[in-house]
Design a protein around this nucleic acid. Structure first.
Lengths: 187, 187
DNA sequence: CAGGCTTGGCTAATTATATTAGCTTTTAGC
DNA sequence: GCTAAAAGCTAATATAATTAGCCAAGCCTG
């Protein structure tokens, strides 16, 4: 029987894609094995456990999100950068809900954990956005936490279908960008 | 053997308490059964499945949160009401992380689902807060979504230990209240 | 107060899933 | 070609949810 030729990266990539399709909660080792064309136990040659798989998917997701946000703000500053970052992040979560969900609740084990690195990169992109505003040193951390809370909260609520009523959601998102911009301007 | 004398409400209450203690992900039917003093299958006399249990815990959590927020804003308006609501919500999530987690991803099946009722009550409390600001009709839904995103995002990130660095988290929370207040004042 | 019905609890069995053990075969490097 | 690590497989184990079917407790009625 010919080998499939998997490696950890391929397994994680397939796991992330599958999580986006069926939802993280429905991502089982059996389903993933079927997807990549091996029997379930064979996956354990590449990831050590489902938790390990989840962590690696989370690291991939944060790294991709950092690339998306970092790329989107290139050449922009101030409100333009804020809007570009917010939209890039939002789009990423809507298009990759499963892998983004994997990032919730995972904690880096050490500062050189790929998870920590990716997380820092994403944070760094939003820090860059904040440099376009007149924000005092002591307010930076608070402002960064505000942005994270706002975009994370909005995206996770939207993905979970938490916004029930009929008002257009994209319109609300643009409203939030304007709100955050105005607020950051007067910190 | 004497009967334990359970009923659905008691099972759900115990489930919510256990979720807060061990985390929603670790809440198993077996663990809950042990906690309330019966064998696992007996739980099915009171809840129809684990998903049903989760929905009921979510409805309980939203109802309690609505009570907490609704009670906290009594007699306040404007910034005081905003701060009271935000703090009450935040405290609730920090003290009841498991049951609050149960609310994420559940959707009411019908408008008279207890889940929908509780959800509307919580939303209503925040709507009352917004009435203390000069907000146009067309901005209300957006502002409400902004508040939800902000407080939901902050609380879930904090509970998941998502705020790594050393800056005091409570200080950031108060900063967010001030930020939201200023912003709502200039909508 | 006895008889019987409803209810809540139990044991046993089924299914799904993660994980481990141990075997076999491919394949890269010499 | 030879060998050893890597990658796959089958079989087995453990945990969890769920269902089936049994039985006793306790209430309601006569």
């Amino acid at each position: 029987m010919p080998r499939v030729g998997l490696d950890p990266a391929a397994v994680v990539a397939a796991g992330a894609a599958l999580a986006d399709e069926v939802g993280l909660a429905n991502l089982t080792m059996g389903l993933l094995a079927e997807r990549v064309g091996v029997r379930t136990p064979s996956l354990y040659k590449h990831v050590s456990s489902q938790e390990d798989l989840n962590r690696r998917i989370a690291a991939l997701a944060l790294s991709e999100a950092a690339d998306a946000v970092g790329g989107a703000i290139q050449g922009y500053a101030g409100r333009d950068a804020l809007a570009a970052a917010a939209r890039a992040f939002h789009t990423f979560v809507l298009e990759h809900p499963g892998r983004y969900a994997a990032t919730i609740g995972v904690e880096p084990s050490s500062p050189d954990d790929p998870l920590a690195t990716a997380s820092r990169r994403l944070l760094g992109a939003f820090t860059a956005v904040l440099r376009g505003y007149e924000i005092g040193e002591s307010d930076m951390d608070h402002a960064l936490r505000m942005l994270r809370s706002l975009w994370h909260g909005f995206a996770t609520l939207q993905v979970a279908n938490g916004f029930q009523w009929s008002t257009d959601i994209d319109e609300s998102f643009e409203w939030l960008i304007a709100f955050a911009d105005r607020g950051l301007r007067t910190v």
